[in-house]
Amino acid sequence: MLHAERLTKSVTSGERTLTILHDLSLSVAAGESVAILGKSGAGKSTLLGLLAGLDTPTDGELSLFGHPLSRLDEDGRASLRAGRVGFVFQNFQLLPTLSALENVLLPLELSPRAGETDTAAQWLDRVGLGERQNHLPKQLSGGEQQRVAIARAFVSDPELVFADEPTGNLDPDTGGQIIDLLFSLNQEAGTTLILVTHDHALASRCDRCLRLIDGHLAAFDPRSLVSDEAPS
């Protein structure tokens, strides 16, 4: 499904070069759920960006669905994602001018399954917002917006879903409900899930946990420690 080999990501600022990720390797099998833990500024989002093909590594090899990303340009990587990769973001990233239903339809419209309005409506039903189809994002609460985002992530039956701090902007109760929803849908669909978080409790629900420290990934058992991470 996803294979990263000796990934390095450096950024240059003036004369200084800062290496964020260093010689990092990772393989994720189909159907697996993987949590990537790390402190604020550890490079979690940078890693997510690389794995999803949103950004390119300075060095190393990365393949997604068997395609080496380094041989694809930005458009090629985008087309690889179309319909096969879902996203859930910390700040929901719903389009403010589109209704809940239209937001869910968006990934379908960019795939060969354009116009499957019924599918989108069913997914809104599944996340409990069947009655709110025509509401704009600003008419929905934070929790409801994230439900729409989750419906959007799963609507195209993706093979892989990336979730970036999906509960970061929500209160604990709502966050808990969102996580339950995310994992239950993931299980039903048999989707591969890569979750970036600083929340150990959340990470512990994944099949595998990895911790990002000083640009390196290490296997980690979240139940072995009490969460000491500060929210980002």
Partner: peptide
């Protein structure tokens, strides 16, 4: 976001 979901330039 559209890029993220696979839209080309």
């Amino acid at each position: 976001l559209l890029r993220c979901f696979g839209a080309s330039q």
